[in-house]
């Protein structure tokens, strides 16, 4: 993921979870952010969909474990879109 994309993703996390200083480590999970519950997770994923012009399946949304997974998913989807 480019540093620009990481910044776009960080902005979404900071705004949604109201944490202006959040560092988006790949191993960041819901255990580190108490308000990252199942509903906020879906909200987050919808914002990511809009920001990056991608669409996630239910399986992808529910099985995502940490920020690293999310970055890989965005990369795979945006690369696939560019290749098409």
């Amino acid at each position: 993921m480019t540093s620009q994309d990481t910044e776009r993703l960080t902005n979404i996390f900071c705004t949604l979870f109201n944490k202006p200083d959040l560092k988006l480590r790949d191993d960041l999970t819901a255990r580190d952010i108490p308000t990252w519950d199942s509903l906020n997770h879906v909200n987050l994923m919808m914002y990511v969909e809009e920001e990056f012009g991608v669409r996630f399946t239910t399986g992808e949304v529910s099985s995502m474990q940490n920020v690293g997974d999310l970055k890989r998913l965005i990369d795979a989807k945006t690369t696939a879109t560019q290749a098409a």
Partner: peptide
């Protein structure tokens, strides 16, 4: 539990849409 999480995720996605 995985089925429950998938179902709840799907419900939440429908609700956001």
């Amino acid at each position: 539990v995985d089925s429950f999480v998938r179902f709840t995720t799907s419900v939440n996605m429908s609700q956001v849409r």
